[in-house]
Amino acid sequence: MRRSITIPVVALLCAAFLSAPACADPVRSGRKAFERAWPAWQRGNQENAAKYFEQAASAYAEMLAAGDKYRSASFASNLGMAGMSFYFTGKYAECISTMEQAAARDPNLWEAYLFSGLASARLGNAEAALSQWKLFQEKGTSQRFIQQSVGLQVTNLETGEGSLEAAVAPVEKATWKQFRNNATFRRADDNEPNSRCSGSYWWRNSRTPCEGSPFRKWI
């Protein structure tokens, strides 16, 4: 009798407190933490951004360690958020390996090449940084500010006029400016506001995903 009562009670507790480590789904936990980190980062609130990116990185590390346990763990969107979370918490090797998986799932995920390049630069790997940034130049053609910065750093590195250490800061600054600009200003031909915050890659044009977004239902 005791056992038959205990199991439902535990299930109810997990349902009521989804953030509890013992019953949390790391995919959902990572996504929710990333959703809190992203607007904080865009607004320049580094303290809150760092706190939530750390939570996201921890959850996503658990997700990846679980292998095939979570069906949506292999989605490019989840891998992309994981890779960015790893980058912003200084886990550069994890960022690179995760973004490699993300790019394999979606070769057009330009964030994979951008952040892999940044992480490679942070680790002092010039060859990998250049390779990834050149892929970004091919895939992220619509991201004007980042394109300009990455293009300049690629040229400087190839001509020997710049260093990896000097390349990171301007690309990071351009990345912040680009995402902030994307979320703040609407294009003249944008007649569907919800299109900016819906979909798997909502972070490209919005600070948060839309309420009721299909993405939130199937993640």
Rank of each mutant, 00 (worst) to 15 (best):
L135Q: 15
N78P: 03
L79D: 10
A174T: 11
N108F: 06
F88Q: 11
Q148L: 15
A104Q: 13
A129P: 01
R105T: 01
W133F: 08
A112K: 04
Q153N: 03
T89K: 09
P107E: 05
K134R: 15
G83P: 10
G140D: 04
R180N: 12
Q132T: 01
N78L: 08
D189M: 04
Q148C: 05
R187Q: 10
R196S: 14
F115I: 04
Q132P: 00
P107I: 10
E172L: 14
G80Q: 01
F185K: 11
L123C: 03
E94Q: 14
A166H: 07
Q148N: 13
Y87D: 00
L118F: 02
L79M: 08
A103N: 05
V150C: 01
L79C: 06
T175W: 01
P107T: 09
N182T: 02
A169I: 03
T98I: 02
P170F: 07
S97M: 04
W176P: 00
Q132D: 14
L123F: 04
A169S: 11
F115Y: 15
Y92G: 01
Q153P: 02
A103H: 03
M84V: 15
S85K: 08
A103E: 07
R122W: 00
G162A: 07
S163L: 05
A167F: 09
S77W: 14
T89I: 04
S195E: 12
C95I: 04
E172C: 05
T175R: 07
N181E: 14
Q178M: 04
Q137C: 04
E100Q: 13
Q143S: 11
Y87W: 08
S142Y: 04
I96V: 11
M99A: 00
L123N: 10
E161C: 02
W176K: 13
T155L: 09
A174K: 10
E111V: 11
V168H: 05
S85P: 14
S120H: 10
P170R: 13
G160F: 01
K177D: 11
A166K: 15
S77L: 02
L157T: 06
A169R: 10
E100P: 00
D190A: 15
N182Q: 03
A167Y: 06
N194R: 12
